[in-house]
Design a protein around this nucleic acid. Structure first.
Lengths: 229, 229
DNA sequence: GTCTATATACCGATAGAC
DNA sequence: GTCTATCGGTATATAGAC
């Protein structure tokens, strides 16, 4: 089992990389052209957004709050995003992309279904730990999205779940897993993984590390899947 | 296993009862004195709040939205709650109270730990199904509360979890359950129960009923708890 | 590229007629 | 008890100086 710190160093994108990717992806609506300047300020914006999101939620956060906390003026902020809603979208889109990429890359290194499931669970937990502000933001903001964006958020939920469903079905087909309700198990795994980043305070209070939690989840699910063997 | 419809009819409070309880509990700040009138309008307010909460979130909802949807004027609304934040609190407080009361009452009818656990899980799922708008509201609004209220929401989370923890520990003590990590299992149960009302669209899409989900969760958890016997 | 100053709109809340 | 009309405050967003 890869220690979390090792994973974070090698596999998780840094805030700097994330900001560069966001800028790259939204060149059309960002008027600042020097990448070095843009990245530096985007990092301050993201930090401030995540901090304010944790304190009071994105909805309640005003652009004046964001201006104050990031150190950029109201006018300057609008050089980095065309409006408050678009800022939200820019952040969400990137977070979802990383999740899929990293988990699939890691799970792809295994062939044995049980091992693949273990790695997928661990990777999801580790990534959500490394990019916790992202995950928390993505989940919490799902409630106040437009119809169109809510639809996308639902698809994202199913996309992640599908990764686990594929692994489970593969294991059932090969005879490694014994489980009649694969789709419910996949949903359960997703729910339990979400709990880690949504209720971090709870686990922190109990002194549970992400490695311990990963071991528990893998053990709990695996023991059920291989019950009769 | 009690069918959901049976439970709903016998155990769950109706919207009318809920509104009467809310009015009773907040007499001091509600200026409308005729109970029949107050209940009728409070029902329209609650319906509108839950509807708008689902559409756009409580934060984004304006009192003008609420006025339009409920059919009451801005001025009239203020006869039923002293302000937007207080309206939120009034609703949350009641929802939490029902959860605890109903689950403890139902689980109290059993003595066998396995049976008690089964009933507690079923009751939580059934109640969250019957009062889904409440549960969804309570969960979603936990993110944008004041520090003081967030603290209360955290305590509520732990309160529900404690109910399951107590049952698990009782079962371990009596030798009915074999489980070294009771607190993690309790947290897992809570997370999975939450998924039902937070992601109803997902389960609806898959055609899963609350009875099926309850059976799955009870089975999944129980099989793990009695693994070596 | 970043700032200050301001336009425009809408918020929560209240006063007072009916 | 419920309404309409309106207050004061603050939001997002922009214009134009530097």
């Amino acid at each position: 089992m890869l220690p979390f710190q090792e994973f974070k160093k090698r596999m998780a994108p840094s805030i700097e990389i994330i900001c560069r990717d966001i800028i790259q992806e939204n060149k059309g609506v960002i008027s600042v052209k020097k990448e070095a300047v843009a990245v530096k300020n985007m990092m301050r914006i993201l930090d401030a957004v995540f901090s304010l999101n944790r304190e009071k939620g994105f909805e309640t956060m005003t652009l004046r709050d964001l201006s104050r906390k990031s150190g950029l003026s109201m006018g300057a902020l609008y050089s980095y995003f065309p409006g408050k809603e678009e800022l939200r979208s820019m952040i969400l889109r990137r977070g979802v992309a990383y999740t899929r990429e990293v988990i699939l890359a890691q799970a792809g290194t295994c062939t044995d279904p049980a091992e693949k499931l273990k790695v997928a669970i661990e990777t999801h937990l580790y990534l959500s730990e490394a990019l916790r502000p992202f995950f928390y933001f993505a989940y919490m903001e799902a409630s106040s999205l437009s119809k169109r964006e809510k639809r996308r958020a639902m698809e994202d939920e199913l996309t992640t779940e599908q990764i686990f469903l594929d692994i489970l079905e593969e294991g059932v087909a090969s005879g490694d897993f014994d489980c009649p309700e694969v789709d419910l198990v996949a949903a359960l795994i997703k729910a339990v993984l979400q709990d880690w980043y949504l209720k971090r305070w709870k686990y922190k209070r109990k002194g549970i590390t992400v490695e311990q939690y990963a071991r528990f989840v893998v053990g709990f699910v695996s023991s059920r899947l291989t019950l009769d063997r």
